[in-house]
Design a protein around this nucleic acid. Structure first.
Lengths: 155, 155
DNA sequence: TTTGAAATTGAGACTCTGTATAAATTATTG
DNA sequence: CAATAATTTATACAGAGTCTCAATTTCAAA
């Protein structure tokens, strides 16, 4: 029987916990698996809600604590966007990318640009800064909403 | 008598309000002037506090409402940083810049890179996106904190 | 200037994230 | 298996920001 991705990540999680002198509890496993099932942006609340619906009941505080651990070990990345909502991004299986965010419909368009990534490193060297990660979000209107607004103004 | 910067900005504010069918109230003037006095990052809370200390008393809700208008008209820019605190940046008199943010001491280092700004425009064209503004924040450790951490680990 | 409709404000209740606490539960180790 | 340490839960709490609606202010028309 082949080890699944989930198994491998779970082992990484288990190893990380052991290294930090923390225990691998049922609650942490449940939360970890739920987070692992996310393919794209998600919020703490959706994890809490999903767990509440399932058979594994876990308290809110434990979800936040466990997600903090997952952030420390680099499996997810917190992003603070407009309007006091923290979004998380899975970092496993996904390459880093940045975002175009439509202010009208909320759509998020991903992009990646290696030149920008390189320039960021140059800047950090210049400023003697030791980067861990970055966030780049361009706000504006997507093609559809721009068209819609344009038409609206014409009426 | 010469018109001050404040006068000019206040006129722009007044014009914007009129254009939007909104009234120029005493409260809005007080808030606008207080925000105008900020040379760098600030929080909604500090505006509320300053007004509360002064002779113009304005409620919290009104401060938030007015700052939203100022954001719409592009005089300030909201930025959401670590731990659900919204910071605002004055956009008047200041050139756009991005930020390096130290995760240890919270220090904010500003930088500007024209190449990155240009690349962003190219990306928007490619994606048919109409940008209004952007946020770029690089998180990590500043020179001092990096040194401090390094020493700590060696002990 | 007065007046009345429309816009705005203020006070406080409320919501939403996230954190702290302390008692109860679970895991680990000898 | 007992003692100890770590963890979880429930609940209270904190902080930022929003909502409501009665009271007030503004504006512009007469």
């Amino acid at each position: 029987m082949r080890a699944t991705h989930q198994d491998l990540y779970l082992r990484a999680f288990s190893d990380y916990l052991r290294k930090k002198g923390k225990n691998l509890t049922q609650e942490r496993i449940s939360i970890f698996k739920t987070v692992l099932s996310k393919k794209s942006h998600f919020e703490a609340d959706s994890i809490i809600y999903e767990l509440r619906m399932g058979e594994d009941r876990v308290s809110r505080a434990t979800v936040y604590r466990t997600m903090k651990i997952m952030e420390e070990m680099g499996m997810i990345q917190a992003m603070h966007d407009l309007h006091q909502h923290t979004h998380y991004e899975p970092k496993f299986l996904r390459r880093h990318h940045d975002h175009l965010i439509c202010e009208e419909c909320g759509k998020v368009i991903e992009f990646r640009n290696d030149e920008i990534e390189n320039l960021q490193e140059v800047i950090c060297e210049q400023k003697k800064f030791y980067p861990s990660h970055h966030i780049m979000q361009i706000y504006g209107l997507c093609h559809e909403c721009h068209g819609a607004n344009h038409n609206k103004r014409r009426l």
